[in-house]
Design a protein around this nucleic acid. Structure first.
Lengths: 127, 127, 127, 127
DNA sequence: GTGGTCTAGACCACC
DNA sequence: GTGGTCTAGACCACG
């Protein structure tokens, strides 16, 4: 799996890294138990500071996406339980996205179609 | 329409303001042509710095949600066209939300149900 | 309230800071709502790097002891709920302490007396 | 007695080993005079580096829990005197635990009940 | 080799 | 002024 960072993005490098890894896990490009590259090697590959990678890894670890294993380094965690806090946060994000869609005159059908498409894409299914 | 800010949120006050106004427009609590409170009065009401309000207003203006009129102040804009750039950004956001849902073992049906619920909620419909 | 760091301790500066603030909150030397010094000023007072203070603050924030407020900086949080995870962690720590006490031939009565004393001391009560 | 290590714990393998042996001695699963497995065999059993086991053994030796004998290898030491330095360290640990309990609104009675329970558990008594 | 800590300086966004 | 990010280099503990 190839990670890319865009230094001109409004998202911080750390967030971009975190998001791409989440996308990778969802699409099964990264499978549970698989070790991620070490902070130093990934940082070198991407041409960024390894502390930045370390921070992205530890935020992913806090959120349960990956596990820091003393022997294997960072490894992808098993699927997470869909807890209440997660749903609550996701709801807020989706509510805002929905509101933006409404403001742009996107009707419910179109919005849901887009949601469906993105869900399938996230899963890595052919569209 | 009542705006609330939470100084302890991870979101900046500016973003909170921007988001709440977008939610308000979507829910038709704020209707096109309606003037928003002046930067100074809203800042005073909320007990925040008026530069913060100004910044929120200009980002909303940049995104086309409101129009800054030198005479009337800020007014809610008409519904926006669902342009390519907007759809592209929205897609990215939804893709990430979908990926997080996938990682939390949420199946497509549950995800879409949540999307539907949030769309209706954004529109201000009874659930 | 005066914080001190010991550069020769086996605990990291960050942990020492964190622990002393927890002790301060328990003893009501720091009361809920009270703002802590800014990372930069505390770091300057203690002669350490402000990133270190920042890290201690954010770990305290993660654990719910303090809250980062955009206006007031870091403030002491209200008393925390005694959740299951907390009790589970505390139990492990106490179990190990108890085991060490047992290995040193400390009987139950003495151990409990020590626990009582430390509880009262933590609360800031006269002994 | 069976030792288990968790490579994903925040505690180092060395500390886990040390703690489990202390727990074992307290619970009399390991009795004074009993030889511990050799550094190499234990390391092989646990699938870890033997330097790690060696380090755990020497820290236990420094603290008086075990004795390193060139011939018999490591053997469990007799019960230790409850010296001043030990009590002082234990007090610090308990003080911090007590403070955390106070911050989580745990009253003295509950805290002491937990301490009692953990003491009995450490001794290996039925609860 | 790994990750983690501490230090340090530059820069930015927010208030 | 505040906290936060990114960079960078030195050092340490662990395995």
């Amino acid at each position: 799996m190839i990670l890319e960072i865009n230094t001109r993005s409004s998202l911080t490098i750390c967030e971009q890294l975190r998001n791409q890894i989440v996308l990778g896990i969802a699409a099964k490009k990264l499978i549970p138990g698989e070790p991620l590259p070490s902070v130093r090697s990934l940082a070198a590959d991407l041409g960024i500071n390894y502390h930045t990678v370390g921070k992205a890894y530890s935020s992913l670890c806090d959120q349960g996406y990956i596990i820091m294993d003393r022997r294997k380094g960072a490894v992808v965690a098993d699927a997470l339980p869909s807890g209440g806090e997660f749903v609550s946060n996701l709801s807020k994000t989706l509510l805002l996205s929905a509101a933006e869609a409404v403001c742009h005159d996107m009707d419910e059908e179109d919005f849901l179609e887009l949601c469906t498409r993105q869900y399938k894409k996230a899963k890595g299914e052919r569209l």
